[in-house]
Amino acid sequence: MDYHGLLNLSVELGCQLMESGAEIYRVEDSVLRLMRAYGAQDAQIFAIPGCITVSVSAENGEPVTRLCRVDAHNTDLDHLELCNALCRQLCEQTPPVEQARRQLADLRRRRPRFHPIAVMLGYFLIGAFFTPFFGGGLMDALCGGLCGLAIYVANRWLAPLAGPNMFFRTLLSAAVSSLAAQLLVYAGVGQHVDTITIGALMILVPGVSLTTAMREVMAGDLVSGVSHTAESILTATAIALGTGAAMFLGGLL
């Protein structure tokens, strides 16, 4: 049994799962099931947001461990589904480790992505639909969509200036969108600055980390559950601060 190859395979699977936004218990459970399916009964895994550690004893009793840091995660639910399906398939069929690793690498290379224009359309749609959802009119919806696009622009080109820190990125995006909303209302395109701002802000709202946090707490992962809760509170604070700063600026002008 190639324990080194197996260890690499399972850590890579765990990394891909975590990168696409899986909950911690899903990462731990998938890796453990994979190791067991390949006959490593004493495998151990410990995962927290941003880090995976897997340890297993080779047949001569020598312990083998691999630790992997995972970068700040974006949410890619399609990739998550594919990883999950591949994990199930590997557990059932247990193909040779090398072949399994190739399959896993293929998954990363072939992952279907939306064209950037489709993603931009997504930002526009969220802003445009949430604005009337919160009580705006037709022109307000258009402005909400445009503010959504402003968030896309800020995320793509301005946020890297703020470094890897999620807090400042969110703050910057929120400020840009709020400024755009005030400008559009000032120019007479939209009418209600409140609903437009809220509609566009829904893009930044920490719904994902909130849902993840609560599912993790439910599964008993208190460490990651609490850290995701803190993340969602910080994101909400960043949104409020960014919008507040932009409102203050807009009031001055």
Binding site: R26, L77, E81, D194, V205, L210, T211, M247
Partner: peptide, 24 residues
């Protein structure tokens, strides 16, 4: 497939974005 995908997206309209804004 994992329940997360559907749950995350479907819960988003209920997240109190307006509340955050008005509190600010």
């Amino acid at each position: 497939c994992p329940v997360t995908s559907y749950l995350i997206v479907a819960l988003l309209p209920l997240v109190p974005g307006g509340g955050i804004y008005y509190a600010m």
